[in-house]
Design a protein around this nucleic acid. Structure first.
Lengths: 206, 206
DNA sequence: GAAAGGTTTAACCAATTGGTTAAATTTTTT
DNA sequence: AAAAAATTTAACCAATTGGTTAAACCTTTC
């Protein structure tokens, strides 16, 4: 009989937890082994080095979430619809993996080259497509002209900040855990409103 | 004659650079000593331990920027004016210290308790004042009703994300360093527009 | 039941790193 | 010039940590 859960999987899950909470520098191989309920020797038997293990975990993290999320932006769909779906998915994703955004940003900052070869090109493709749609809509006059970077940065900033700054926001604004969750839920509705208002604003059009 | 620059200051500047770029875990005392142009023994002679040195640098970082920045929100001033001044200062601050926001977020995440006693209460005070102003304006009907957390998170998210995600945004959107700087400058005008549109939007008022 | 592969145990190694120490040297103060 | 304080040198220590090794022990496969 094969093991209920493959040891490799067990290791990867454990490593993911530890890496995400401690970062590459702070993570300890021993802690990963403990959390996976095996010993260090076996850990190295499966993944020769910390670097290899990290590489694997990091790429899995990106690949298991990136395509689905940015896929939304690539679909044939009205802008407003895209916007709402993207935000809904994005906020929900981060609610379930609160340490992920900081982890991803940190590790990409630490080693920017690694990114592009793997998933960067796909995302660039999506960005290109989105750019065309934005131009077309602007030409029709349904939205103001805007660069893709500006739009994406705004959306992601509005979604990401409440999650990565949770340890600051909660004490400063005196939010209970429940208050904070309500706040996050609110974002799902509010972010699209903010963005859509901005996109369709006439007052600052040229 | 006293030294041109006090050794303590030299150490703190060096430490600040190293800590901000490598984080507490990644920083090396030797590197700090080298950058300060002294030796490790003297480094420990001035600051007994890495923890003490870090504590000092971290608090200086917060205290030298926080009050001025959040002070703007506490002033007696029309909302729109506050908004514009805050964004202008905030983006400029981050342009000159690009590693700061990630550093602050990371270290507060690592040790949330430390924050509140030192600067948290001041910021809370400001938040309270801002809350009153928002309520008053909403009562007058000049803006939609909104919670302080929602507003602050939105503003900061819009300003911070372009900076912390620079290593992602640049390759993905194929921005040159110059393109990126233009993008950042653009934020100073655009963020207030985004927020003000949102605050004065009638379509989703209740 | 033998062979192969997965897993544990436990000791060990080398490198890194925070921190110490003591003596010598230089600079500043008095 | 003497005393005090700042700084260097260089060796050293102890703890942590990534990684290895070899033998034994299970478990699966054939």
């Amino acid at each position: 009989m094969t093991k209920d859960v493959s040891t490799e999987r067990k290791i990867l899950e454990a490593a993911r937890e530890v890496f995400i909470q401690q970062g590459m520098a702070g993570a300890r191989m021993q802690e990963i082994a403990d959390k996976a309920d095996i010993n260090k020797a076996l850990l190295h038997y499966y993944f020769r080095s910390k670097d290899l293990l990290f590489e694997r975990v990091f790429m899995e993290t990106l690949q298991s979430n990136g395509p689905a999320l940015f896929g939304i932006l690539g679909k044939e769909m009205p802008l407003k619809e895209k916007l709402m779906q993207f935000v809904e998915h994005y906020v929900e994703l981060m609610k379930n993996n609160p340490f992920m955004p900081l982890f991803v940003i940190n590790e990409i900052s630490r080693n920017p080259e690694k990114l592009f070869g793997k998933i960067g090109s796909q995302v660039s493709q999506v960005a290109l497509g989105l750019g065309l749609q934005l131009k077309a809509e602007a030409a029709k006059g349904t939205i103001r002209p805007i660069e893709p970077v500006d739009l994406i940065s705004s959306i992601m900033g509005l979604c990401v900040f409440p999650v990565i700054a949770k340890p600051i926001l909660r004490p400063v604004f005196g939010l209970s855990e429940e208050d904070y969750n309500k706040f996050l839920e609110r974002r799902k509705k509010e972010v699209p409103v903010i963005i859509w208002n901005y996109l369709t604003d006439k007052s600052t059009n040229e």
